[in-house]
Write a protein that binds this DNA or RNA. Structure first.
Lengths: 189, 189
DNA sequence: TGACTTTTACCGATCGTTCGGTATATTTGT
DNA sequence: ACAAATATACCGAACGATCGGTAAAAGTCA
């Protein structure tokens, strides 16, 4: 509509911000790091996010939520064998976390958690993820309660594997957990 | 042994430091917060930890490692039914994390992770925990490889449940995971 | 007294934030 | 169509506050 040439696109901008926030958490994500990662100067970031660092964090969470919904959660809602759908989702999830070498934004951003606004964003993103998992588990034939528990288990294992990978500098656990996801969410064990 | 006049004991000192580090992570744990939590002034903390914040973080990790080994991991190595030992350990673990309301130091401290020394402490603590779990699983009759996988699963689920609790402000998932631990580590499912 | 702990007072650096101003693009008035 | 006015995007420099850290004095015991 009315754009005076943007130095970088919103997509590129968010790429930089996401990388910093997911790596260093909210407190560790300093303006200097955000400036370096985006290529924009301090004041320019404030032009795009008048609400400052808090708004950046929330915007980053929303952006990741959208990307996650489009690229990872979407396959779960498509027609076809639920197990195959979960396998597709697991594959995309592995890519998203680069095989478990990157942390989850919902984990790193929830450390400290003195900002009400951010905490609310985090729990909302988490809930959306959870709902998508429960739904596919119900598609596989499980009752609401059983599906709920399996979705919870899946989310717990994904988050736990990412923490373990980061803390011990490994990659195998996450890969194994992801490979077992179809069985966990749709299997009759 | 050679203490003239300590305002507070090492135990009390570490209590304060641990609370701050486990709540806010390394970057979020500012000197001001540490001063407030311990009751000692800035310079007094530097007297006890000449290496500064990095040394405090490492000392805190070591301290928690010792407390963890004594109070939580010790029951795992005692004689008796492995399942009962794990149940005891699960009970102590629940208390340690206050039913899942508190975060794990190994999680929050590994966010950011630009300090080599801290990262090394974290992974070492994690390894000790892992080894204790594998050992009790082998006591339950599992071969090394099978026990290894079950220990890994247990650790993943504990960490994942703690992350989920924090991110969604819940407490149930962690409690459920802990109750299922004996089955996971020693059960023949 | 002498060894040890705590404190007051302070340091330079960096934190998140804001200001003043420039360049480019769009809209408006004629 | 052409210039004035408006809006958008950016940047350098600085703000007050707080960061992690240090020196030297004051207090506290054997």
């Amino acid at each position: 509509m009315m754009m005076a040439h943007a130095k970088i696109s919103d997509e590129e901008l968010f790429d930089g911000l996401i990388t910093v926030f997911r790596t260093f958490g909210y407190e560790g994500a300093t303006m200097s790091k955000l400036v370096e990662a985006t290529g924009l100067e301090r004041a320019s970031l404030y032009h795009r996010f008048p609400g400052g660092k808090t708004e950046m964090a929330c915007a980053v969470l929303e952006c990741v939520g959208e990307r996650f919904a489009e690229n990872i959660l979407a396959p779960l809602a498509k027609p076809g064998d639920p197990a195959k759908r979960v396998a597709k989702m697991a594959k995309r999830t592995k890519e998203f976390y680069v095989g478990g070498r990157l942390s989850c934004l919902l984990d790193t951003m929830s450390v400290g958690g003195d900002k009400e606004q951010i905490q609310e964003c985090v729990s909302r993103m988490f809930k959306a993820w959870f709902d998508a998992l429960q739904k596919v588990s119900m598609d596989a034939g499980f009752k609401a309660q059983e599906a709920k528990q399996r979705a919870e288990d899946a989310l717990i294992q994904i988050q736990g594997a990412l923490v373990m990978n980061r803390a011990m500098n490994l990659t195998r656990p996450f890969g194994r957990i992801m490979d077992d996801l179809p069985q966990l969410l749709t299997g009759k064990d």
